[in-house]
Amino acid sequence: MRAYRNGTNIKVVAENGVISPTDVALDFAGGNVYWTDSVAYVIRVARMDGEYSRVIVREAEHIKPQGIALDPENGFMYWTAYWTAYWGNGAKISRSAMDGSGSKTLVNTTEGLKWPQGIAIDIQGQRLYWCDGGFHRIMSSTLQGGDVTDVFSITGLSPGYFGIVVDDSYMYWTAWALDHITRD
Rank of each mutant, 00 (worst) to 15 (best):
N89G: 15
G134A: 05
I164F: 12
S101W: 00
Q66P: 13
W79E: 12
D122P: 02
W176Q: 15
G88I: 07
R137C: 09
F162I: 05
G134H: 05
T155R: 11
W130C: 02
N108H: 08
V165C: 14
T110P: 00
T174Y: 03
S96C: 14
K104M: 06
L128R: 01
I181C: 10
G118P: 10
S169M: 14
G156F: 09
K92S: 14
T105W: 09
G163R: 06
W79L: 11
T84V: 13
D167Y: 11
D122N: 12
G145P: 07
R127C: 04
V151A: 02
N89Q: 13
G112P: 04
W83D: 15
T80P: 12
I121Q: 01
T142N: 08
G102S: 07
I121N: 01
G88L: 05
T174I: 04
D99N: 06
W83R: 14
D168R: 14
A81C: 15
W173N: 08
P159H: 10
P72T: 02
D150L: 14
Y161W: 15
Y86R: 11
I68E: 04
W130R: 02
Q66N: 12
G125L: 15
Y129E: 02
L113H: 03
W83Y: 15
Q117C: 08
G134K: 06
G146V: 04
N108D: 15
G125P: 04
S153K: 15
W115V: 09
S169G: 08
G100E: 05
L106C: 10
